[in-house]
């Protein structure tokens, strides 16, 4: 799992929803090494700590990756001001990424994203072809909906839910998830999003006994495993471990995560 630290040119920048930015970055070495579910650690000029941002899409032919992030504070605001043509200082790719599996032809996988947890699920969905992937995307309201067309472009049958019903189905991602699981065709579930959503997805996966992987988030410093700042609690074989989201994760098996 080699990673790089360098300044890479920005090919494309766009604001895809209010305060949510999409960047395409030319970084052939990173694109070649990257896996869906990994992240990049970006330096924001004038700030001590880098910002961990998940990889949204990988294009190995063009040597690019795409990231999508929301402006949450001054650091991400600074990042969002970087124009195309400027360079992005990144340590990348970092973390383990989702496990992509060979699945039988009559089976499908489900990717679930909530809010700004949606972007990494796009690259994960893109790993499965031939109508093998269903996407369930949850947002607060219509204004926050992102990447729906992108999921359709990569061949995912896509359902969108909003908390207030202003777009798609009203309600939580677990409703379409359960509907799909009831059809009995699901081989694997992948999820990234806010903690309450992850808890619900993990419980649902347990009830239906479907393998599930989730991507966790935590305040991070080094991003490479050295500082042990981004701790998460993991239970394996009856034993408790404190692991690093950045290096041991960010993706963990659902049944091992203690939230």
């Amino acid at each position: 799992m080699a990673f790089f630290c360098d300044e890479f040119p920005i090919v494309e920048r766009s604001e895809i929803a209010s305060g949510i930015f999409s960047y395409v970055i030319h970084c052939p070495s990173v694109a070649l090494a990257a896996k869906a579910g990994q992240f990049v650690h970006i330096r924001a000029e004038g700030y001590t700590l880098r910002r961990p941002i998940s990889i949204c899409e990988i294009n190995r032919e063009k040597g690019t990756i795409r990231i999508v992030f929301e402006v949450r504070g001054n650091g991400t605001d600074k990042l969002s001001q970087l124009e195309a043509g400027k360079k992005m200082d990144m340590i990348a790719p970092l973390g383990n990424g989702f496990t992509i599996k060979e699945i039988p032809s009559d089976k499908t996988v489900i990717v679930i994203g909530g809010g700004i947890g949606v972007p990494p699920m796009l690259g994960t969905a893109a790993e499965y072809t031939d109508n093998k992937v269903k996407a369930v995307l949850g947002f607060r309201n219509k204004d926050r909906v992102i990447l729906e067309e992108d999921f359709k472009r990569v061949g995912a049958e896509t359902a969108v839910c909003t908390d207030d019903g202003s777009y798609g189905e009203k309600g939580l991602v677990t409703f379409p998830l359960i509907e799909e699981l009831e059809r009995g065709k699901t081989a694997m579930i992948y999820a990234c999003g806010p903690t309450p959503m992850l808890k619900a997805v993990i419980n649902t996966a347990r009830v239906y006994n479907i393998p599930c992987e989730v991507s966790l988030e935590q305040r991070m410093a080094c991003g490479v495993g050295a500082c042990v700042g981004c701790a998460c609690n993991i239970r394996k074989g009856g034993r408790d471990f404190v692991l690093r989201v950045c290096k041991d994760g960010p993706v963990f098996k659902a049944e091992e995560v203690v939230l």
């Binding site: 305040r219 500082c227 042990v228 700042g229 701790a231």
Partner: peptide, 17 residues
Amino acid sequence: NGNPAPRIAETPAGMLN
């Protein structure tokens, strides 16, 4: 095992751990 997370916070020109 150390302390519970979050264990990191940013500050002007610095950080807490």
